[in-house]
């Protein structure tokens, strides 16, 4: 871990000024990923700007019937917030599927979006990685890659985004509020994370100095027809091999609309609007769900160790949609999968 200087911001403006003026400066909040990466010397910021004292801790109702979640709301507070439990149980479930109680207490809403990949090669400074050291090559291609991407990968990077919460946020079509040296802007969740392409070092579309101030959710939908299904190598405290956030709007026994997002399979939460369109007007059935899964996984490509994820993701999508349709969302403490 490199030594660094430290600054504590008292206001959003002060924070932005401190980071945008220094190419080696980074914001720090919960620190659950950044401090970890700094210990591995993967991240080597020259200066940290502490934003934890900024007034970004509120969960407030919006005019549109949704909520606006301050960037510093801890993951656990968000998951256990009464409104979130009632109106956005998919989000609560996804959060509780991730990490541990301790990490959720420290990790923040904004920080969760900025988690970096768990790729072994990214984490190991003794190995090549284009994301960490652009131009050094991708160690995972042709290497150990059972946790890697099957969708949207590139010749230079096959890393996945590790967040659970973000998979739910994708299905819920959240909007990210950002403040930067050029003022404020909003980013559709869809457009927040990016695919690696030939610039895998960039996980998302934030510009240097931009600060996430809030994540906004539109008015609640799906009622009881949602689930977050996470499959992993041990039953808790492990990153997803594959996860699915699903929500259905049912009218009688007909699907009026659907949202499905996949985690653990790509450099960003994976959504395919055409797959959701396929479900519209259908009766819930394994056939209909299977067709949606096919569409979601169209173009999926394995790298060897992770070939199984294609079939696993296909089956997980079907199961998640069954759970959503039956209004029997996966419980995160009961490890049997209904």
């Amino acid at each position: 871990m490199m030594n660094f200087s430290y600054a504590r911001a008292e206001s959003v403006g002060e924070a932005i000024a401190a980071v945008s003026g220094d190419p080696h400066a980074r914001y720090i909040a919960g620190g659950t990923n950044l401090v970890d990466l700094m210990k591995y010397d993967v991240e080597r910021p020259g200066r940290l700007v502490d934003i934890t004292r900024l007034p970004l801790r509120e969960i407030a109702a919006t005019a549109g019937g949704g909520i606006r979640i301050g960037a510093l709301v801890p993951n656990s507070d968000l998951a256990y917030d009464a409104r979130v439990e009632r109106d956005y149980p998919l989000l609560a479930s996804a959060i509780l599927a991730g990490a541990s109680a301790q990490l959720r207490n420290a990790a923040t809403t904004g920080g969760n979006l900025l988690q970096r990949t768990r790729c072994y090669y990214f984490y190991d400074v003794g190995a090549p990685c284009n994301k960490r050291a652009p131009g050094s090559g991708c160690g995972a291609i042709g290497g150990v890659n059972r946790i890697h991407a099957i969708l949207g990968a590139s010749e230079s990077c096959i890393a996945t985004h590790p967040s659970d919460m973000c998979v739910a946020l994708a299905a819920l079509e959240a909007v990210v509020h950002v403040a930067g040296p050029g003022g404020e802007r909003t980013i559709a969740f869809e457009d927040f994370h990016r695919l690696p392409g030939d610039r895998p070092e960039a996980d998302n579309t934030l510009r240097h100095g931009e600060l996430i101030t809030a994540v906004e959710l539109p008015a609640p939908r799906f009622g009881p027809h949602h689930t977050y299904l996470k499959l992993r190598d041990r039953l808790s405290y492990a990153f997803a091999l594959v996860s699915v956030a699903a929500g259905l709007e049912l009218e009688g026994d007909t699907i009026r609309d659907a949202r499905v997002a996949l985690g653990g399979v790509a450099h960003k939460p994976w959504r395919v609007p055409e797959a959701e369109t396929l479900l519209r007007g259908q009766k819930p059935s394994r056939e209909a769900f299977g067709a949606a899964a096919e569409r979601l996984l169209q173009g999926a490509r394995g790298q060897g160790d992770n070939d199984f994820k294609i079939e696993l993701a296909r089956r997980a999508v079907v199961r998640a949609l069954e759970q959503a349709a039956a209004a029997t969302p996966q419980r995160q403490s009961d490890k049997s999968i209904n």
């Binding site: 090669y121 190991d124 290497g143 041990r234 808790s236």
Partner: peptide
């Protein structure tokens, strides 16, 4: 690389409580 890659408790899984 001749190297064990998942050299941490996050990726080398020992059983958890669950």
């Amino acid at each position: 690389l001749g190297r064990f890659m998942n050299h941490n408790f996050g990726e080398y899984h020992i059983p958890s409580h669950a």
